[in-house]
Computed example of a mutant assay.
Amino acid sequence: MKFSKRLVAAFFTSVAAAGIVLAGAPAASAAKPFCDVNLGSGAETCFATADGLRGYEAAAALAPVVTVFKSVSYLGDQGFFNYTNVYNRTTCTAADSPHEASDGDLRDAFYQNTGALMDRSISSIYIRPGSGCRVRVFDGIGFTGSSKLVTDNAVHGCDDIRYCFPEDWSNRIRSLWIS
C-alpha cells in the first residue's frame, strides 16, 4: 500500500512539474553570437556558429574590416561581430569624424535578440590590415562620455582592451564608431 501511494504521489509530482515547465518557462532560444553587420546597408545577420558566418560572408563576397570580440586575443569562443562592406568598399577613409559607421547603443534589441550582448562586453578589437579603418570607443550610450581611438597598430587593433590604454577599459564600451 505504501509503495503504491509513493508511486501515485511521484506520478502526480512529475506531471505537475512538467506542467510548470511547459506552461511557465519561456522557450529557450539558441544563441547566435556570430554576426555580420553590413556597414553599407545596415543589415545585421547572425549565426549559431562561426563557420555559418564565414560561409555567409564568403557567398556574399563580404570582407570584414573590423571585428569586435567578447574574448581577449581575438578569440571567437564567446562570439564576435564582423563589420563588413563599408559602402561597397573594403577600406575606410582617413577621417576620424564624421564616422562611416556606428553603433550608438550596444545594449539595443538586436544584440539582446541574438544572444550576443555586447554592451560592456567587448574584450578585443581587430582591424584588418590595409583597411585604413579605426575604431573610436565610448563609455557612454550615444557616443558620450570618455572615448579612445583604436588604430591598426602592430597587433592590428587591441588584443586585450584591459591593456590598450593607460586606464583599464574592460567592461566600459557602450557605443562605437568606425572611420
Results as ranks from 00 to 15, higher is better:
Gly104Arg: 06
Ser97Lys: 13
Cys46Ala: 09
Thr67Met: 09
Ala61Gly: 02
Val65Trp: 00
Met118Ser: 03
Ser124Gly: 02
Ala25His: 11
Val150Gln: 03
Val65Ser: 08
Lys70Ile: 11
Asp105Ser: 11
Gly42Cys: 06
Ala95Asp: 13
Gly142Pro: 00
Ala109His: 14
Gly24Gln: 14
Gly132Gln: 08
Tyr87Pro: 01
Lys32Leu: 05
Gly52Cys: 07
Ser121Thr: 13
Asn38Phe: 04
Asn82Phe: 06
Gly76Ile: 04
Phe34His: 07
Arg134Ser: 12
Ala61Met: 06
Asp96Met: 07
Asp96Lys: 05
Ala43Gly: 07
Gly40Arg: 08
Ala23Asn: 15
Asp103Ala: 05
Phe110Trp: 10
Asp36Ile: 00
Tyr126Pro: 08
Glu57Asp: 06
Tyr83Glu: 00
Gly40Ala: 11
Ala23Gln: 14
Arg120Ala: 15
Arg136Cys: 04
Phe81Gln: 00
Tyr83Lys: 00
Val150Trp: 01
Gly24Glu: 10
Val37Cys: 10
Val150Asn: 02
Asp108Pro: 15
Val150Pro: 10
Leu149Asp: 06
Ser147Val: 03
Phe143Asp: 01
Tyr56Met: 04
Ala31Trp: 08
Ala48Leu: 06
Ala63Thr: 14
Asp119Ser: 14
Pro26Arg: 05
Gly79Lys: 11
Ser124Ile: 01
Leu53His: 04
Ser29Pro: 12
Asp108Arg: 15
Val21Gly: 12
Gly140Pro: 00
Ala59Val: 08
Val65Asp: 01
Leu39Cys: 07
Arg54Ala: 11
Ser124Met: 02
Ala61Arg: 11
Phe69Gly: 01
Tyr126Glu: 04
Ile141Arg: 09
Pro98Phe: 02
Ser71Gly: 09
Arg107Trp: 07
Asn38Val: 08
Leu149Pro: 11
Tyr74Gln: 06
Ala30Gln: 10
Tyr83Val: 01
Arg107Tyr: 11
Asp139Leu: 08
Ser146Arg: 11
Thr67Cys: 09
Ser102Glu: 08
Gly130Phe: 04
Phe143Leu: 14
Val135Leu: 01
Phe80Leu: 06
Ser124Glu: 02
Gly42Thr: 05
Ile141Gly: 02
